[in-house]
Design a protein around this nucleic acid. Sequence first.
DNA 1: CTGAAAGCGCTTACAG
DNA 2: CTGAAAGCGCTTACAG
Lengths: 332, 332
Amino acid sequence: MNTRTTIRDVAKEANVSIATVSKALNGVDVVKASTKEKVLAAAKHLHYVPNLMGRELKTNQTKRIGFYTTSIKGPYFSVLIESIAREAEKHGYALNVFISMEKEVVLTSILGGAVDGFIGFEDMLDQEDLETIRNEAINAVFIDRNIQDHTFGSVVFNSNESAEYATSYLIAMGHRDIAFVKGFDGVFDSDERFKGYQQALKKAQIPLKANYLLEGRFEEECAYQSTKQFLHQQNDLPTAFLAGNDLSAIGVTKAIEQAGYHVPHDFSVVGFDGIELLKYFRPSLTTIVNPIKEQGELATQHLIKLINGEDKGKSFVLKGTLYEAESVLQFK
Amino acid sequence: MNTRTTIRDVAKEANVSIATVSKALNGVDVVKASTKEKVLAAAKHLHYVPNLMGRELKTNQTKRIGFYTTSIKGPYFSVLIESIAREAEKHGYALNVFISMEKEVVLTSILGGAVDGFIGFEDMLDQEDLETIRNEAINAVFIDRNIQDHTFGSVVFNSNESAEYATSYLIAMGHRDIAFVKGFDGVFDSDERFKGYQQALKKAQIPLKANYLLEGRFEEECAYQSTKQFLHQQNDLPTAFLAGNDLSAIGVTKAIEQAGYHVPHDFSVVGFDGIELLKYFRPSLTTIVNPIKEQGELATQHLIKLINGEDKGKSFVLKGTLYEAESVLQFK
DNA sequence: CTGAAAGCGCTTACAG
DNA sequence: CTGAAAGCGCTTACAG
């Protein structure tokens, strides 16, 4: 069994020192052209590829950025991750996606120096973890909460304003009885959307009704169940549903149809995000489209600037845009 | 700015040597209990996390497996990747997903020792690359082609048999004029499915018609365009379409509806894979469901056995199952 | 049970 | 322009 080729093998083959091999291969242009050629030929001949651990241990950088998550399910991720990967590659960085349920694994990776920085997501890391990461001066850009610090930045959506806008839009369409399908309490986008909903009602002087608040957990299934039950038990029905995200809007719509009603004739429905699979769903869904691709790109650009010391942490807020489709009808 | 905590800092804090710290932290149970306690306390106090590069360089293993791809778009990936990640984590390995368009980046990573082995996908790596990887004794399990060797295994679908079965099913439903929407020539699943289609026709003594072969490239859009054009230009129309995968089956269906026809009343449609987003699509699609999750799990188990030297490369073949839905109707 | 030493494969001042 | 040497942070025989 072949043992892996090292820089020493190349040096021997080319009759130079390992220092010269390193310089020739890394384009440190101090090496004589003929020497460089000789080294390159030897490296090619031996199929030499530098051991990354050696290089990274010495240079203390990996040229990798990380994305840590417990799951990549959900229609949001492929667009986000792919935009991060493309943007990173443009700047000479590779993206590493780590999927793990275990916090220890994630922390070991981040603090163990597996990446030069990471794009943060989910609430897996608590305040103490963040403190530790900060102390090690590891750069990060968060996309699900508003953080700003010397080494931490964030790129979030203006969920608050979007939700207020979406609610006002429904009100302008004649709806006054608008149910809200919640996401997760304590999650930034969820809380902000709920606040926006409340603000819009307040401005229109429509009282908030507790019985119009449904559980959605940002999932189709949960929203489906809540809505189904809601439609059965309630005699004070709304005329419209504002769902915490598109998936739950789909769940709401399916529950409405299942109960024998129709969207938008009996109920209007609005979602958030503008996920890709909407193009397969009928009736087409009115939603606030979030610029997910731009979020990934901006987060990546910012992270790389942080890594290179060209910037300090900033907080960016991206705006959503209303996409009008079939699921909303003028009321009355 | 804090410099990162190393094993030396912990040793100093605990008043022992770095060797002892290493042993205490790694559970080499030769260390006196009280010493171990002292070390653990010091490590915790300093928030010490071992530098992975140091460890990996020394031990020559990463406890990571890789998944390299140019894109994670497509409904297939989240299920596959997630099943790999979960299975890997069960065995103490982390999954690293690398998304890159550049072959050099991928090879540098694989040959540079970034992972202990990888799950291979796509035709990015040519025969020569595989040869190089083999020479370095790097383990891999491929999921899109049938490879078997000492360090290489594979887990593929029985696309040939599935396609023959699907075609025979359509024939049994009374269809004799069956168009085939191709994937990519040269791609294993694509070629195998095409062969299976041909075999079934032959067995039923139905001649293969060249004008019944459409381009699909495994994509919705391409299949849509091909089918649209086909329906316009052709006066010899088939009664059923067998599409290379579900996405192209969706494209076919949309083109049929767009041309004013209906599925399944005017044309029956069958796909392959059983992707998750089918649940959002109407009419519901008859398809051959591939056990994607099982493929990911089996590939991972096999890879880890290869890494541990507990097995040599094998070739596994997984069977699909027919899922009958609305898109096929008895003909006549 | 503990520690000094070697060495994994690199890069980079430094000397020549 | 080239090379000898140091050292990145670990682990692991080996000696005591």
